[in-house]
């Protein structure tokens, strides 16, 4: 029996062209192609500019990647459920401005200000989740609405002005501090926190029942429901956890930029979605790995960083990112057509 099985499997394998084999490989490991792109980008930028692959540049690259990489975790969770979050930047800025304003104008203790800011982000995510589950509105519409709402509240609350780091308690600035530079390489607490976030969420997605349910809900919601998955509760937790992640990203952002600025990270929505998509997660839900998102965020930032080191104009960098998104989605479509 087993010999005939393996012979049949052998036969099936031989029937594949090399291209089909690549397609199968990418289908099994969707983060392989972004990893390849990242390696190529690294080699290319190293060849173009000797300053790219230095410890200090790499440390800076990690710091620049941290915020988008953090936001992309929440975005990955939501996209895995076949949703999308356009309010990621708005929630982050709202959370950040509230943390900073409470600490400066309210004269509040850093811990309390941080906790209120995080709670607010959780509440904002919960609101998105409630609108998606209770009113059954499409996530695109919900988060398009809350994007405007949260942005407006953040501007109204902060009065539209920035708050510099020296007006803030040390706890809020803490994630900008770190170790080094050692040999030029500087590791900030912000980078470490984002790394821990990846480890925790990655574990939850791949090793727990909740993670499986996230994939199940995104792949086929009705089947998941019939199988006994509490689909509404899964969706609600996904949006709420995403909110918490955006709150933590706001803390990282204050440390990174040395200020709380209401017009920071205007491109956060696009960059977080780009990182997720380039990382091999399908916009149709149910498919993808968190590690791919990390690679995707590194690709986006390496591209920006490498091209700017090479002295290439900002607009060309944006253009390159756009091309990369379209290529990534095309590859995803191609992979999904894999034959059994």
């Amino acid at each position: 029996m087993t010999t005939t099985q393996s012979a049949a499997a052998e036969f099936a394998r031989r029937q594949q062209s090399p291209l089909q084999r690549v397609q199968h490989l990418l289908h099994g490991y969707p983060w392989l192609s972004p990893l390849l792109i990242l390696v190529i980008a690294f080699l290319a930028f190293t060849a173009m500019n000797s300053r790219f692959a230095t410890p200090s540049s790499l440390g800076l690259l990690l710091q620049q990647t941290a915020v988008v990489a953090a936001l992309a975790i929440g975005q990955t969770l939501i996209i895995l459920t076949a949703g999308i979050d356009l309010s990621v930047g708005a929630i982050t800025i709202l959370s950040m401005m509230v943390m900073a304003t409470l600490a400066k104008d309210g004269g509040m203790n850093g811990v309390v200000a941080l906790l209120i800011g995080l709670l607010l982000a959780v509440g904002a995510g919960l609101l998105n989740g409630l609108l998606v589950t209770r009113l059954s509105l499409p996530p695109f519409i919900v988060t398009l609405g809350t994007l405007s709402i949260f942005t407006a509240i953040a501007l109204l609350y902060s009065g539209g002005s920035s708050i510099q780091a020296d007006h803030l308690p040390s706890l809020l600035n803490f994630l900008g501090e770190g170790f080094g530079p050692r040999g030029g390489f500087r590791l900030t607490w912000g980078v470490i926190v984002v790394g821990v976030m990846y480890a925790v969420v990655g574990f939850a997605l791949s090793q727990t029942a909740w993670g499986r349910h996230v994939y199940a809900v995104g792949d086929d919601r009705e089947s998941a429901r019939l199988s006994g998955v509490a689909t509404q509760r899964v969706l609600l937790t996904v949006y709420t956890v995403a909110g918490l992640i955006y709150g933590l990203a706001a803390w990282v952002l204050i440390g990174r930029s040395g200020a709380a600025t209401p017009n920071a990270i205007v491109d956060a929505n696009l960059n977080s979605i780009t990182a997720v998509v380039i990382g091999g997660t399908s916009l149709f839900g149910g498919r993808g790995r968190l590690i791919g998102t990390l690679i995707g965020a590194l690709i986006v930032q390496s591209l920006q960083f490498g091209l700017s080191l090479a002295g290439i104009d900002q607009q060309y960098r944006v253009l390159a990112t756009g091309v990369l998104v379209i290529v990534a989605v095309s590859v995803d479509q191609w992979i999904r057509k894999v034959k059994a």
């Binding site: 086929d220 009705e222 089947s223 998941a224 019939l226 199988s227 006994g228 998955v229 149910g286």
Partner: peptide, 21 residues
């Protein structure tokens, strides 16, 4: 169910144990 209620992206074992992990 007639519509089978299996999740295509998950493996067989995950489907068998879905919501009863």
């Amino acid at each position: 169910y007639q519509q089978l209620a299996v999740i295509p992206a998950l493996d067989i074992a995950s489907n068998l144990y879905l919501a009863r992990e």
